[in-house]
Design a binder for these strands. Sequence first.
DNA 1: CTCCAGGGATGAT
DNA 2: ATCATCCATGGA
Length: 304
Amino acid sequence: MKSIAAPDFDLEKTLDSGQVFHWQKIGPAFYGTIGDLPVSVTQSGTRLQFTGAGSNLDGLKPSRLRRPDEMELAKIVARYFALDHPLGEICAAFPKDEAMAAARQFCAGLRLIRQPKWECLATFICSSMKQVAHIRQMSQALRERFGARHEIDGHVVYSFPSAERIAASSEKELRACALGYRAKNLLATARSVANGSANLEAWSDLPDDVLRAELCALPGVGPKVANCVMLFAYERLRAFPIDVWIERVLRQRYFPRKRKVTAQQLRAFCESYFGEQGGYAQQYLFHHARRGGGAGPRAAHKGR
DNA sequence: CTCCAGGGATGAT
DNA sequence: ATCATCCATGGA
């Protein structure tokens, strides 16, 4: 098993922070895929151990891509987990307030993963009005039904299916994966990607506003999902997705006892207040609120 | 059982 | 621009 240095990194927090939804923890190791590669990853101290060999045993067509050697796999793992992000500098640039300080302490080592674009887009189309546990179920169902099967260290994992594969499915099949009303949107967007009218890779060079507009033109993609895809798959580190958790944090911690705060005011505040590192700040506030306790839906009703 | 979830599309003020 | 309603599903 190969290993690489991973200082200032927390694998479990990173994989449990609602960015990705397909990693399974079995014992100390996480099993999943990076793109089409089956991988197992284990953190021990400041090092990351991983294995990535593995074979396609399901009888489907084997991948035409040759398996990367250990050196190449190390680069793939380091890039995926963004070990090159200057986390110290990023956190030092956070605004100085109590909410950020608490989130920063709770989320030490949490990094923003560099996700494959289609996989990220598709899973966040599925995310609307769903808890993280549900998103995990939908992701797993799509992978098991339409993705490529792999084995890694004796454990079965599945790649996320391509846009072409989803486009070739039917709304009924997607609903069978418990997507509900999201099935129609995922299918329509998959078709746009598959037929080339939405070229996700080519959009990498677009400025933020244009990229956001392109994403929002896709069925099932609005401002929130677009910002998630920009942040998690396009390296737009100032993108600031506002979901119900973040909105709650903003109203409670940054606009206490102020009755009318419009969505537009919240957006303007986040843009100016969190600025360049807004994406990281947002992810830290989100993960702290969701997993750190004290900021749940019922927090206001619970005795203090 | 009820409540709510990493929302978006549509239509009415 | 802001607001209301509907859209499916299942964990807590």
